[in-house]
């Protein structure tokens, strides 16, 4: 039995390139280049390692605007087999409830045995999408996974989960949704030929909300949460004083009543 492994990847603004809008003095996220959410690279690597062990295929999905195709191409360059862009105006305003519903339906349609996701994103970082996918489908879940051991004969996947103060080994029945702990599973570099293929010849499949039969279950209307206001957090005022000798550090230690 080989496995169908589905990976969810999301496009996010490049955290290193978010500039300040000169007119408003606010962070200008709209003009930051979009990149693949860094933790999703760990999920892709975990998927490819599972495929190496069990056999099968790795299919990548993203729910996002048409230009999110770029992150799918990156995943194909890393060695994934195929990719689906799930894109529709109807998705606008979706919180994690319809987002995870959409991905859950896509995973079901692809007949996934395992769905791999990143731990959380660098933009809204809820970490709620992977458990949400599992909950919508009634599937098992393994979050904060640091290591994976497939047991295809038993139809199970065992994960080492990072928990407060230690770890646990949890076995889950397939189908299962995994959120890979950020920083685990070092992503492999893209091969040159694969990269050329991904950039020049590859076209992802494209699905709309109607293709997944969820037109009335997505978007702003079904999203329980809404972002009310967004305030820019002013950085905490610090003295930022550079001292030129270790001795000089005693003064602040006196001030804070650490040394006498």
């Amino acid at each position: 039995m080989t496995w169908t492994i589905v990976v969810g990847v999301k496009q996010v603004p490049d955290a290193d390139e978010v500039g300040i809008d000169p007119d408003t003095g606010r962070l200008d996220r709209a003009n930051a280049p979009a990149v693949m959410n860094p933790p999703d690279r760990n999920a892709l690597e975990a998927a490819l390692e599972l495929r190496d062990t069990v056999g099968g295929s790795v299919l990548v999905i993203t729910m996002g605007p048409p230009n999110a195709t770029i992150v799918l191409e990156e995943a194909i360059a890393m060695g994934c087999d195929d990719a689906v862009l799930v894109s529709d105006r109807a998705f606008a305003g979706s919180d994690t409830w319809p987002t995870s519903l959409t991905l859950a339906r896509a995973a079901e349609t692809l007949e996934a045995d395992v769905v791999l996701c990143g731990e959380e994103t660098t933009d809204s970082s809820t970490g709620q999408v992977p458990p949400g996918i599992a909950a919508h489908n009634g599937w098992a879940q393994l979050t904060y996974a640091e290591e994976l051991e497939p047991q295809p004969d038993e139809g199970r996947l065992v994960a080492r989960r990072d928990v407060e103060g230690g770890y646990e080994l949890v076995a889950a029945q397939l189908p299962v949704v995994v959120a890979v702990a950020y920083g685990e599973f070092d992503p492999r570099p893209a091969g040159l030929h694969r990269k050329i293929f991904a950039e020049n010849d590859f076209e992802p499949r494209e699905w709309t909300a109607a293709d997944l039969d969820i037109e009335d279950e997505v978007g702003l209307d079904v999203s329980p949460t809404a972002v009310g206001t967004m305030e820019t957090v002013e950085p905490v005022e610090r003295r930022s004083e550079l001292v030129d000798s270790v001795n000089a550090l005693l003064e602040p230690l006196e001030e804070t009543e650490v040394v006498g």
Binding site: T225, A226, G228
Partner: peptide
């Protein structure tokens, strides 16, 4: 906090 802490968003569920 969102966007790595640059933003403090108020989320409501009406």
């Amino acid at each position: 906090p969102a966007f790595g802490g640059d933003i403090l968003a108020t989320i409501v569920c009406e």
